[in-house]
Amino acid sequence: MMPSVAYLPGETPLHRLDARVKLALLAAYTFLLFTSDGWVGLACCLSLALFGLVVGKVPLGHALRGAGPIALLLALTVIANALSLAHPADGAAIVGSLSFTPAGMLHGMYLAVRIILLIVAAALLSLTTTPVALMDAFTALLRPLGRWNVPVGDVAMMCSIALRFIPVIADEADRIVTAQRARGARFGEGGPVARVRAWGPVLVPLLVSLFHRADALADMLDGRCFTGALRTRLDAPRMRHVDWAVLLGGCTASVLLGIYL
């Protein structure tokens, strides 16, 4: 039931790199992707992505899985760029004023590859970082916003509770499905309308139980005097020298490359 680009346990240097640094590097890589021009820039980004895959020992298949849902969109991008309504010199006419241009197709492929690389980079992050570490990293980076009255503590609490409760709610849904099956309900049979209707007896009790849990949690938070401040984390990850080095090196490199390429 876990999403396909979920955490893949490992002990590689990429796994051990501080989550905040990885987030920052992802931002830097995105900057690099969109500011570098031409195929040289793309080749550079491609090799960086491959380097990441090697260091993190991440199978290519896992990393590309995130691109699955948008494969159709990417294909359409290539086709849309390949077609032109004008009459370009190198075009091959198809129908009326519509023609196919190799240059356009190449440009479309360039755009598609760029998106795929972005997806691979994001996958590298989620495959080598536990959800909790990611959550903490986001929270740490959001902290400065607290100065402008953004309820950072509340947001962080909501996100971390949501994360913790995903398996709990999955279990609850499973229990309800089982109970309704025991009463003869059938799931996954019949036409589309019947299938959707079958889920009513599951979603209603699930929502009701969610509200009950929310009440219980709210009571618990009140009972522990939660006021919306950020939580103190014991054993909070500290930046090591390696982390700083990678952070500075990575950001500098991406800025320079982005400008020159």
Binding site: R175, A179, R183, G184, A185, V208
Partner: peptide
């Protein structure tokens, strides 16, 4: 097959879903 044998789970009230009590009991 499911439905041949009746089973009452723990916290059975967690499976109630219908608009009226009668509808819920008639579901089975």
């Amino acid at each position: 097959i499911p439905g041949d044998v009746g089973i009452v789970f723990q916290r059975p009230d967690a499976q109630l879903f219908a608009a009226t009590v009668l509808d819920d009991v008639a579901f089975g």
